[in-house]
């Protein structure tokens, strides 16, 4: 059984367990976009990079936690300055590629990305490959796959025709991390969600007593406590903000 150290905590794990699984077992959050517990890791999104050193000496490296098997004497830091910088730069690139996704905007708020220096591309698909793996590994269909290389790489059907193996189950839609659109708040849409900081958070007021059908945006959650006049009613928000709200 390999024994490794994650953020200073020693942990014994079974052979074959990845660093991501070990960290999540300890309750240490590591952001991911291309990972799902039921699918083989792809280490494509690189958001789960952690700083890894073997033993006490030697240079540390950033490696993707999702595909990194835990080994003896591994020393892992999931939130070092280097990891934080890599994450922020990555999220900035993601926001520019797909600014319409709620999940990516939430990541940006959660990890403190306050500006996007690139022109927005609205490419939408981030090629995490979850749909392809879902179709192949869970639905046993393999009706979609990647075509092209580099800048031309895209998720595609064979010869751009729907394959008869496609049962139109919709699993690919279900698992897509970027399909959920971001909240169209009252402010003009900027590349980076501004969290309605200058306005009353929209969903809070519009749905005064009703349950919001969207998960609250992370940016709005952060903005919430700054606005004492905003009443927070729904349970989901209450738990998130219980720390600050008295």
């Amino acid at each position: 059984m390999p024994k490794l150290t994650i953020n200073g905590i020693e942990v014994l794990v079974e052979k074959g367990v990845t660093v991501l699984e070990a960290a999540r077992f300890l309750g240490i959050p590591i952001p991911t976009l291309c990972h799902d517990d039921g699918l083989a890791p792809a280490s494509a999104c690189r958001l789960c990079v952690v700083e890894v050193r073997r033993g006490l000496e030697g240079r540390s490296k950033l490696l993707a936690a999702c595909s990194l098997p835990a080994e003896d004497e591994m020393v892992v830091h999931t939130n070092s300055a280097r990891v934080q910088r890599a994450r922020q730069l990555l999220i900035e690139l993601y926001v520019a590629t797909c600014p319409s996704s709620k999940r990516i905007q939430d990541l940006a708020s959660a990890y403190g990305v306050h500006e996007c220096r690139y022109e927005a591309e609205h490419e939408d698909c981030i090629q995490c490959g979850l749909c392809v793996r879902m179709c192949e590994q869970q639905m046993m269909a393999g009706a979609i796959g990647f075509a092209g290389r580099g800048a031309n790489r895209r998720v595609s059907r064979p010869f751009d025709m729907t394959d008869k193996r496609c049962r139109q189950c919709g699993a690919c839609l279900y698992i897509c991390p970027v399909c959920e659109l971001r909240c169209a708040g009252p402010a003009a849409e900027a590349t980076l969600c501004n969290g309605c900081l200058n306005f009353a958070p929209v969903c809070f007021q519009s749905y005064d007593d009703a349950m919001c059908f969207l998960d609250p945006c992370h940016a709005c959650e952060l903005a919430g406590p700054l606005r004492p006049d905003v009443k927070i009613k729904t349970r989901a928000r209450a738990t998130v903000l219980s720390g600050e709200k008295q």
Binding site: Y118, Q127, G150, A151, N152
Partner: peptide, 18 residues
Amino acid sequence: LEDESCGQCFPCRKGTQR
């Protein structure tokens, strides 16, 4: 390199393009 990147991992694909 933008042309020859396999496109699998995000930093290389987007990094070379940007």
